[in-house]
Design a protein around this nucleic acid. Structure first.
Length: 492
RNA sequence: GGGCCGUUAGCUCAAUGGUAGAGCAGAUCCCUCUUAAGGAUAAGGUUGGAGGUUCGAGUCCUCUACGGCCCA
């Protein structure tokens, strides 16, 4: 345990004193009848110096105290907000007041009393009774500046939530966004399902997995990098419309946009193609933005993002041409492609194919410019082993990615349902894997067996929930929208 | 992985290479309409860690831990 400071010791002493006076510092339960928000709602009409005789019971954490001899104003914080209480010696009694005076900021108390409005117009509870519900042994951060230290905010999110009211707002919004998505999909008769997080093969995306071990079976298992292949097995099974909202795990770097575990919604709709999925994607996001922010415009990191109206749609090659000037719509040789990449100062490997280089150019130079909602379509087949070919071009698949605020928010395609083609693609991935591409996909024989039973034509979509929440809460870092972001362990 | 920046009291922040300070919080006292309450008094530090340079290091150098930003 870390060294104990004076304030901790002081509070420990107060704890002992309370026990000596037969005051239970950690009682089992407390029944409250009001929240701070409910009090504001029900008594907010009270004029200055007006009073209501209704008795309210409320619990919360003491955030500030203004002690004046025989009376004290304090601010309580509960899940719904803050409210002032007024504790007077002549109202609660001498012994009780003596105990009250020993309480500290950070302590959790219950208050019983009636509501009035002060001379200065602040809605306040006149306490008739105060009950200690939990003694806090550690001091609160500074009451005015809150907790600023970013490292402490992430490592000790509980302190962050106590000290900085706006933090909980972000997570309330996050919850609302997810509920909204569930509601929309439920209305469309999608079935919410849960598929394995621990998989014998990590499929469905190009990413490095975490590996764990099952002792009884004595096998290694992967934490999933995507639920895709399982959800599509359900489409084979006839579920027709399914979605899953849960964590994926990717064993990669940590940045303002990447956390090793992150939340995705993935959905699959039988008999749909990527164009229908595109409409659904837009509906989901605009509805979430509208219901969470009340508007269809969002300020994000200095830009105004407009969700109303049609969203820009362009092919990958069109986007590369528009934002870099490099024209691959007119076919180029590999040598010409390499030269263009060098001229644009985009790095590539000798074994990279032409489309891989074009994709790198896109990632390096184009993504950062896609601030307004933009659908990028028609990806190269070799980079999309689970997507169905475009009708007239075997090099291209029916796929789109959605970019908002210069980051990828969604990925979707018309799902490949030809088992023979799927086997060929997975075998190509295996070859790339053997050549050292750790992110190439694995060959999943059971998945191909499932396709061999016949999967209806199907559209699939994945939306990165964390990044969507970043946009609607104007958060610069993914850590601001994840309650407990991954951190290196504290060295002691 | 590379570059830059940061780490000082519980919290928020100061401090030309020359005695480590302030505000809040905490302690004691005064105070029954305060709201960053107010007034008085006293206290609170191994400056992230380990080395080094120097008469003298929070400050300069090296290493290291953790974090932030940018790049890959």
């Amino acid at each position: 345990m870390e060294e104990l400071n004076d304030q901790y010791l002081q509070r420990r002493k107060k704890l002992d004193d309370l026990k000596a006076q037969q005051v239970e510092p950690y009682p089992n339960k407390f029944v409250s009848t009001f929240s701070s928000a409910k009090i504001r709602q029900q008594f907010g009409h009270l004029q200055q110096e007006a009073e209501d005789s209704t008795v309210v019971v409320l619990a919360g954490r003491i955030m500030t105290m203004r002690l004046m001899g025989k009376a004290c104003f304090a601010t309580l914080k509960d899940a719904s907000g803050r409210i002032q209480i007024y504790v007077r010696k002549d109202k609660i009694g001498e012994t009780e007041y003596t105990i009250f005076k020993t309480l500290d900021m950070g302590d959790i108390i219950g208050v019983e009393g009636n509501v009035f409005c002060t001379r200065t117009g602040e809605l306040t509870i006149m306490a008739q009774k105060v009950t200690l519900l939990s003694k806090a042994l550690r001091p609160l951060p500074e009451k005015w500046h809150g907790l600023k230290d970013i490292e402490t905010r992430y490592r000790q999110r509980y302190v962050d939530l106590i000290a900085n009211d706006e933090v909980a707002d972000i997570f309330r919004l996050r919850s609302k966004a997810i509920k909204t998505m569930r509601r929309i999909l439920d209305e469309k008769e999608f079935l919410e399902v849960e598929t394995p997080m621990m998989q014998p093969l990590a499929g469905g995306a190009a990413a490095k997995p975490f590996i764990t071990h099952h002792n009884a079976l004595d096998i290694d298992l992967y934490l999933r990098i995507a639920p895709e292949l399982y959800l599509k097995r359900l489409i084979v099974g006839g579920m027709e419309r399914v979605y899953e909202i849960n964590r994926n795990f990717r064993n990669e770097g940590i940045s303002t946009r990447h956390n090793p575990e992150f939340t995705m919604i993935e959905l699959y709709q039988a008999y749909a193609d990527y164009n229908q999925v595109m409409d659904l994607c837009r509906e989901l996001i605009t509805t979430v933005v509208k219901e969470c922010t009340g508007k269809l415009e969002v300020e994000y990191q200095g830009n105004t993002i407009v969700f109303a109206g049609d969203w820009k749609r362009m092919t990958l090659l069109e986007a590369v041409k528009e934002y870099t000037g490099a024209d691959f719509i007119t076919p180029k040789t590999l040598a010409e492609t390499r030269k263009i990449a060098r001229d644009l100062q985009v790095p590539f490997e000798d074994q990279d194919s032409q489309y891989k280089i074009i994709n790198t150019i896109f990632e390096e130079l184009v993504e950062k410019k896609l601030v307004q909602p933009t659908f990028i379509c028609d990806y190269p087949t070799e980079l999309s082993p689970l997507a169905k070919n475009a009708k007239n071009n075997p090099d291209i698949v029916e796929r789109f990615e959605l970019f908002i605020g210069a980051q990828e928010l969604a990925n979707a395609y018309s799902e490949l349902n030809d088992p023979l083609e799927q086997r060929k693609r997975m075998e190509q991935q295996l070859t790339q894997r053997e050549r050292g591409d750790e992110e190439a996909q694995m060959l999943d024989e059971d998945y191909i067996r499932a396709l061999e039973h016949g999967m209806p034509p199907c559209g699939g979509l994945g939306i990165g929930i964390d990044r969507l929440i970043m946009v609607i809460t104007n958060s610069a870092s993914i850590r601001d929208v994840i309650l407990f972001p991954q951190m290196r362990p504290e060295g002691k």
